[in-house]
Write a protein that binds this DNA or RNA. Structure first.
Lengths: 226, 226
DNA sequence: CTCATGCTTCGACTAGCATCGAACAATGAA
DNA sequence: TTCATTGTTCGATGCTAGTCGAAGCATGAG
């Protein structure tokens, strides 16, 4: 009847600072070991272990045991989307509305969101796809048009095959900084892979920032108009 | 640098069962008094007062004092969207994956989300708008086409004027039960108003369920094809 | 004015939980 | 096997935060 308890069950998991640090460290879609996450959270191993089992029990994390390591990752892109939604509310109701620092500026420009490109550049890319009718939104699903299929092939991005999971090819993901959509889904992931593989940009270690080189930025801008 | 604390600040507010009950009671976009919310949360007045000031301080609620009553409401539709996102994760990772009860079935069929129609019927309505090109998604914004403008006028829904707030006319809102978009924004609110005003459906007291009468359901279905 | 209502503040109690030290289990390497 | 590394479980501690009773402010009615 009351849906509050279910709501609070999940929110309380995110509501602890140590756990929130772990979750945001996993927002890039990667998997980290228990000790790495303990470091991220700023707690010792036993504490981290306790938190991690709670998060896994609660369905937010997925565990993959490999050798003597245990890799933890977000259990689904939907969890990442939820975290972005919470960050969005936190951003517009922050206690100290301080001017954004340089780190923030980089984050707004381009960052990784689960496994695809977010931020100003991610939104610009998505807008250019919509403008040229390469993708067409229909409900929450985003469909790739024939022209779009051809265009992606032309710039060297192969359409990723359907994997075991039923993850959609294209999906819109709400951007917390720009508050508009950017491209997610398998094609969004493939696009980011392409940008990295081409050397246009690289990930800044231990952060979600994606840093474009000057030449890479020019190449990316060219793609927006190509 | 670490964004965990900000994330947990907001999540912890939702993470208490009493507060979560209050928030989900406000999910219909209405405003309730402190004592009504205390009843919803199942706590006494002093406890509720403490929770409410925390929520307001945290930016999730907006207060309107009228006479000796204080009305509390969600501070923005974005807060409602965040709550829906959390509910979505809670639904697919629930501890007891019990078969949905009748109340759940009603909720999935049609419910109020802040101030617009959600659930299967809400998604169907939105899909029919997209199919007939009455609205066109572009990024997170949804644009009303000239044909759509004409169509809405034809079925008797006047376009709501821009209010003081910069709330968009059309917006897509992710549905937690169907996991696709439905129509939000000022036009979404106007549509629900129309459905209620025409007597096609009514709100079930003290719940988010929207119950269509048989005749109302037929009328609504007709609109989907008209 | 006097009383009632709605809400908040204060103070005290309590329960839950995050934290860490120490010990234990599991895996891999030498 | 023996040792090192990684991670978990257990137990104890300490603090935070939710809860309510009682009292204090407002506002509105009679």
């Amino acid at each position: 009847m009351k849906e509050g308890p279910e709501l609070s069950r999940v929110a309380a998991l995110v509501g602890d600072p140590a756990r929130a640090n772990m979750l945001s460290a996993l927002m890039d879609g990667g998997a980290l070991t228990a000790s790495e996450l303990a470091l991220e959270a700023g707690v010792l191993a036993p504490t981290a272990s306790s938190h991690l089992s709670k998060l896994a029990e609660g369905g937010l994390l997925r565990i993959a045991s490999q050798g003597r390591h245990r890799y933890y990752a977000l259990s689904s892109p939907q969890v990442a989307a939820m975290l972005e939604a919470i960050m969005g509310v936190a951003a517009l109701s922050g206690p100290t509305r301080s001017r954004p620092g340089p780190r923030d500026a980089d984050m707004r420009e381009a960052r990784i969101c689960y496994d695809h490109l977010a931020g100003t550049l991610g939104v610009a890319f998505y807008d250019s796809l919509v403008r040229r009718a390469f993708v067409c939104e229909d409900g929450d699903n985003v469909a790739l048009s024939a022209a779009g299929e051809h265009w992606f092939a032309g710039i060297g991005i192969a359409l990723p095959a359907q994997s075991r999971s039923r993850r959609p090819l294209c999906k819109a993901c709400l951007d917390w900084s720009v508050r508009r959509s950017h491209l997610a889904g398998r094609l969004g992931a493939a696009t980011l892979d392409h940008v990295i593989a081409k050397g246009w940009a690289r990930r800044v270690p231990s952060s979600r920032v994606i840093r474009f080189s000057p030449a890479g930025r020019r190449a990316f801008d060219a793609v927006l108009d190509a």
